[in-house]
Design a protein around this nucleic acid. Structure first.
Lengths: 251, 251
DNA sequence: CGCAGTTTGTGCGATTATCGCGCATAACGT
DNA sequence: ACGTTATGCGCGATAATCGCACAAACTGCG
């Protein structure tokens, strides 16, 4: 573990500025950023001007927004891990086979972080999640599949620490019953939600096997009404096939 | 424009370290990074340890690799610009309509940077491009569509500055003929390549109209043999429809 | 297995890059 | 028009960062 003297606080602050921009905070002023990142406003100003200078943000009046250039950073990850060759084709193939969208997520800072997707249905816009979107763990199938993949005490800790938010009337708000859902997902090898995160939407997810590194899970979502017993079995089989293929092909 | 005193050189160096990782440089040592980023190796070491501390890279023996956490930065851009709601559904719909993959790119630092994609064909893996991938301007349809979207003198400058690389035997290596292709793309409102970047692969791309901000283009690729006159007309119509829908819906 | 070359760990003194403050100005919203 | 908020910017202080040097560890090869 790095000693304090080996950590560049200026760089860390700068990265926190990049993190300030998200779905809720699309355009931010110097003052906004200083407040969100808990920085002195002169420091925030210099860091934002550095991002502007390098092309990662652009100014619109008194506010700033991220530019597409930040996608290059994601490209560094996706290309260096060969997602375009090893992951995306597997997702695309399975997605085409079962005619449903797929999302691959990793557990990251107590959330499910989407790193790849396939075959978004043109007719139905979910919440508009993209690669880089972060979903809560507790009310989502993919979150529970990630939790199911962890040792029990570790997932219990994450369940205890994660915020309880009522997304729909079906969202469970007691950690005991969520823990029971996670335990059930661990036993069954998959997680299913029904309207707990998005009204009328079912989620199905499986953990991706793998010994080292970050825990991954693979999931899909579809209209609850479309989830028949047969459909569920088909999707589960396909997700498990896909997860196995990903585990084998992606280092 | 920011004065030099308003630029944080440490933060800028740190971001350059993040940029060192790509398809060719998946795993890098301190020395590699110092060399690639032209930094003193102690400085490189501190910056890498900062990234490790924050979770953006992880160590594997003596080398480091990016972690999925960098996807959060891309998510900031995609979510704050509502790509999941405004861009992705349009791409998915058109992609489904013409049964071909689509990629949306922006001109970024003399290259075409993919920012969104739809419906990758499961049966054909191109070069494995993903969001965040950067493609050269000169031999690709999408690059030429981006160039066609710029004022003539600006695109002439970019053509003059861009490297000439023989990707296939069909790649043109004289800037005059490339400029002529760009001029033709400007006249026709679209660009078509045939095997100039990927052997046996045709590319078709159109610029995305829009007055402000970064220039965007939309393109697809398919087997050259599959590109009949009828197919070309269908695809072009769909790309133009899509580009227009994107221009209208994406701020 | 030994060796040469390369890489890394780390302490340290120097310095300059960054810090935060304060005052003046600009912009915004009512 | 005015009050409030945000911003520009100069400046002195300082601590964060710098780069060097030496020792240790690692790697690849014969």
């Amino acid at each position: 573990m790095a000693a304090a003297r080996d950590i560049s606080t200026t760089f860390a602050k700068g990265l926190s500025v990049l993190r300030a921009f998200d779905a809720e905070n699309a355009r931010l002023s110097f003052s906004d950023i200083a407040r969100i990142c808990d920085l002195d406003r002169a420091a925030a100003r210099r860091l934002v001007l550095t991002l502007e200078h390098l092309g990662y943000v652009r100014r619109q009046g008194r506010v700033f927004a991220l530019t597409p250039k930040v996608m290059v950073l994601a490209g560094g990850f996706l290309q260096s891990h060969q997602y375009g060759k090893r992951v995306q084709p597997v997702l695309d193939a399975i997605s085409a086979r079962i005619d449903t969208p797929l999302s691959l997520a990793v557990l990251e800072e107590g959330e499910a972080l989407y790193v790849a997707q396939a075959r978004m249905e043109p007719s139905r816009v979910s919440f508009g999640f993209t690669v880089g979107s972060r979903l809560p763990l507790l009310p989502t199938a993919i979150g529970r599949a990630l939790l199911a993949r962890l040792p029990e005490e570790k997932s219990a800790l994450l369940v205890a620490e994660s915020p309880l938010v009522m997304h729909t009337p079906q969202t469970p708000l007691d950690r005991e019953s969520i823990l029971e859902c996670v335990a059930e997902a661990r036993r069954a090898g998959h997680a299913i939600t029904r309207g707990e995160f998005e009204a009328g939407v079912a989620g199905i997810a499986v953990p991706v096997p793998g010994a080292t590194g970050h825990p991954f899970a693979l999931g899909t979502s579809l209209a609850q009404a479309a989830l028949t017993v047969e459909r569920e079995a088909t999707i589960l089989q396909a997700l498990q096939d896909c997860a196995r293929a990903l585990a084998e092909g992606a280092g």
